[in-house]
Structures are given as C-alpha cells and as structure tokens.
C-alpha cells in the first residue's frame, strides 16, 4: 500500500507536506522534538485529519471530510505503535490485550487464539506470557507486547513511533530482527519515527527529515545521513558509522565507503590504512 501526502497542512504543526512512502520499504522519519513527526504518522491512521490537502493510503483517502466507516477500514490496515507503550494497554492479561484489536476489527472468534500465539511468537515472547498482567512487564516486554497487539490484526502498514527510547540493547537487537523479518517475509511497509539515527541507520532504506512542520530532507539513508552539517542545522545527529567515514574523507581525503555494520567499516579501514 503506497502512502501519498498531497500538499497536506495541519494547523501550524504540518505545512505543505507533499511526499510518498513507497510500498514494502522501511522508512525512517527523523527530526527534532516538535518538528511534527508524530502528527504526520497519526494522520496516516486518520487520528488527525488534515486542515487542507489529503492523504492517500492505498485506496483510502483521508481529508477533513472522511467518514467513520472508511476510517475503521483504513485503521485495520495501519498498525501504529505509540511512543509510550504503557498508554496503549487496556486490558489485564496479555491475551486480552493482543486480541483487543482483533475483536473490534471483527476477527472470527475461533481464529483469535491462534493469532495471539502467532503474534507473541513474532515478537519473541513465549506462550506463557498470555496469562501475565501487562502492567507487570518490563519496559522491553511492554514494547514487544504493544507491537504484538498491533501485528495481531495483520496491518499492511506498520508505524513505530520512537520505538527505542529507553529500550535496553537486547530488546533493541530483537526489534531490529523483527523489523527485518516483517519486511522480508510479509513485505510490510514499515515507518519508523526516531531521533536515534544510529538505530535508523541499521534498519531503514529511505529517510525523511522534518523540521518545523516541513519535510526538509529526503533520500536514501546514505544520501541524507552523509550531509552532517545540514543535519546538525536541524538538530539531527549523524550516525557514528557515517560520521567516521565523513571524518576520514574530510581530514585525510580518503574515501572509505559508508557502511551499515561496524565490522564492514573495520575491513575498509584496514584496507585503506595499509
């Protein structure tokens, strides 16, 4: 499902957003606090309606006149995991939490248990979590639960809003695995909103940078993250892997490549230092 923002504005928070999210990509959306990132992705789930312009998600159109029936159909196809997972929990058992969305999106009852188990599996939580109280879980487990609850109704588009804030490393690594599996196996479109550009660099293909309600940079992650000075202007940090290559080029005039993994970077360094 392709997502297209057609000259969308929303109060003073979004200004003339005109961009496309291609189907089946992993896209990063970054920018400093208050730049409008959360509002932009909430619009994809029709939680916020544009004051002008419209958003096309597949065949659904979101503008300021859209009706509820269409909204629910759309929301069935968009899974949004909010920044604060504890604000997304409405039930006292993990089982009820994951099946919550399914019941309201009218899944057949006999299929629910299977889907719950599949969702838990997908995020790396064992089946005995089903009876646990979601409020007693650790931060990393809560985050996984939130993702499982959203994957449960199998949306084509998955949006993660600041998924790694305060997340420990193990959970971060797991999350990266999950994201890659979702793209590889199910070809989902995944949008990740994050200020952690080191994390984004590891998972995304394409990047948008926002500032003051507008899209100010876009391109492949290598294109965008390479422009350190411009990023700094927008209060965005360059991933260390890229910063290193940039520094070597700037100081020593040697062009080692841009790498996604530190081991690959080491190999390049070794080659060029000899």
């Amino acid at each position: 499902m392709e997502i297209k923002f057609n000259d969308v504005s929303y109060k003073t928070i979004l200004k003339n957003i005109d961009i496309k999210f291609l189907d089946g990509q992993i896209i990063g959306l970054t920018g400093s606090s208050g730049s409008g990132k959360t509002t932009l992705v909430e619009m994809i789930d029709a939680l916020v309606l544009p004051t002008s312009g419209n958003v096309l998600i597949g065949n659904y159109k979101v503008d300021n006149k859209v009706k509820l029936k269409n909204i629910n159909d759309l929301r069935f196809n968009v899974g949004l995991v909010f920044e604060n997972s504890e604000e997304q929990i409405f039930n006292t058992t993990v089982y009820n939490e994951i099946s919550f969305g399914m019941r309201y999106f009218k899944y057949k009852t006999d299929q629910i248990e299977k889907h719950v188990k599949d969702s838990l599996n997908m995020v790396g939580l064992s089946e005995d979590y089903m009876h646990k109280n979601p409020f007693n879980l650790s931060h990393g487990e809560t985050k996984k639960l939130a993702i499982a609850s959203v994957l449960a109704f199998n949306p084509e588009i998955l949006i993660l809003d600041e998924p790694v804030v305060a997340l420990d490393n193990r959970s971060k690594k797991n999350l990266i695995k999950i994201i890659r599996a979702l793209k590889a196996r199910y070809n989902k479109t995944i949008i990740i909103v994050s200020q952690d550009t080191d994390f984004l660099h590891k998972v995304v293909d394409y990047v948008f940078v926002m500032a003051d309600g507008q899209i100010v940079m876009e391109g492949t992650k290598y294109d965008v993250f390479a422009k350190e000075a411009e990023l700094l202007n927008y209060n965005v940090k360059t991933p260390q892997l890229i910063a290193f290559s940039n520094l070597v080029l700037a100081k020593k005039g040697i062009k080692i490549g841009y790498r996604d993994e530190i081991n690959d970077l080491i190999k390049d360094v070794y080659r060029y230092v000899k």
């Binding site: 909430e42 939680l47 899974g79 949004l80 909010f82 604000e87 969305g101 999106f105």
Partner: peptide, 13 residues
Amino acid sequence: NRILKAQASRGID
C-alpha cells in the same frame, strides 16, 4: 488524549 488515540487506532473510537 494520547490514550484515546491509541484506542482509536485499534478500533475503539
């Protein structure tokens, strides 16, 4: 407001 949005995104608007 944030909680209501989270609910709406999963079918309870």
